[in-house]
């Protein structure tokens, strides 16, 4: 009964806040800005979710923090860019190449670099993945120079006639603009997230992954090759940023540190959402995306990431297992 009362109180409070907000003069003049922050936050949040998903999976199954996650995304960004620049391949078509490419790279890294140190102390593994990140970043620097490149999709500002309605990009949603590349990135990211969820929860491979994550010896005993599962899982994690890299390339820029921003955000999302939880990565990604933009408009003059760090600390203090995580021993 008390629980219901509290829920009711929260609901009343939320409604009050909404009413005050919408009736205030602030709202009148800043509706558009608020809508834009909401929209921008959600759109980028979808990409954060996809990136975090890969990290969370690797974390949940192999128990290692992959500091090279962002660097792998940089590889995907470059791959997509080079395919576009040299062969005119549309970035969304390049997904068909970057996803398997990064899967293979991930498998390679896991088998030849990480597997040998799986039983080493955790800080060895952290340093190893950090080292891999530095190598990748500097390799990109040497091969491509640090000059950032960018592309503009020829059809990004076109009109699309879909029969029932036409979409003239960038489209307006409550006064906020949604650009085509960001919308596609958002939708594809969530789609892939759903696909991964189905993989983990409805397939033979997914059952093996979850089993290997929770109880490797028990998994061996029912015929699961746990080492192979580790390798495949790391590959899937890399494939996630293989997709994310191609998706962000059209609206970001191509440079050796392009994936680095997503690295830190991905960690925070994983902590917020709960390590090893796919729904957690999605919810966490959207929340962090929104927080970023909301901080910008409600706490002006501060870093966008301030709100994000505050959330991170709050989670560590009050609910270290994250929103969807289970309490660890």
């Amino acid at each position: 009964m008390r629980g219901r009362l509290r829920q009711a109180a929260w609901a009343v409070l939320a409604i009050l806040v909404a009413v005050i907000l919408t009736q205030s003069t602030w709202w009148d003049t800043n509706q558009t800005v608020f809508a834009q922050a909401l929209v921008s936050g959600l759109l980028i949040g979808g990409v954060y979710a996809l990136v975090a998903m890969g990290l969370s999976l690797v974390f949940g199954v192999l128990d290692i923090i992959n500091f090279a996650h962002g660097a792998l995304m940089t590889i995907a960004i470059y791959a997509s860019y080079l395919l576009f620049d040299n062969y005119g391949i549309d970035p969304y078509v390049s997904l068909l190449i970057t996803i398997p490419l990064l899967f293979v790279i991930g498998v390679g890294i896991q088998r030849f670099a990480i597997n040998p140190v799986m039983d080493a102390p955790i800080h060895n593994q952290l340093l190893l993945t950090l080292g891999i990140a530095i190598v990748i970043e500097n390799l990109a620097l040497v091969l491509f120079t640090g000059t950032p490149r960018s592309i503009e999709l020829a059809y990004a500002r076109n009109e699309f006639d879909l029969g029932l309605f036409t979409l003239d990009f960038p489209i307006k949603v409550f006064g906020a603009v949604v650009s085509l590349p960001k919308l596609i990135a958002f939708m594809v990211a969530l789609l892939l997230g759903g696909a991964i969820y189905v993989l983990i929860h409805r397939t033979q491979l997914g059952a093996a992954i979850r089993a290997a994550a929770q109880e490797p010896e028990g998994a061996e005993m029912v015929g699961i090759d746990v080492r192979r599962i580790y390798t495949i899982t790391f590959g899937i994690g890399a494939a996630c940023v293989g997709a994310a890299g191609a998706l962000v390339m059209p609206f970001l820029f191509v440079s050796p540190t392009a994936g680095a921003t997503f690295n830190i955000i991905a960690f925070i999302v994983v902590v917020l959402g709960g390590m090893g939880s796919i729904p957690g990565a999605v919810v966490g990604g959207l929340v962090i995306g929104l927080t970023q933009e909301m901080t910008q408009i409600f706490v002006p003059g501060s870093s966008k990431l301030l709100g994000v760090f505050v959330i991170f600390l709050a989670v560590l203090l009050f609910r270290p297992q994250g929103l969807f995580g289970k309490v660890q021993r």
């Binding site: 936050g41 906020a176 910008q296 408009i297 003059g301 966008k304 990431l305």
Partner: peptide, 21 residues
Amino acid sequence: RIPYPPFEVTDLTTEMSQAAA
């Protein structure tokens, strides 16, 4: 005046929206 962290942003649409407002 709308400041932003230059090396961390991946999007400036919200900030530009604030400017236009």
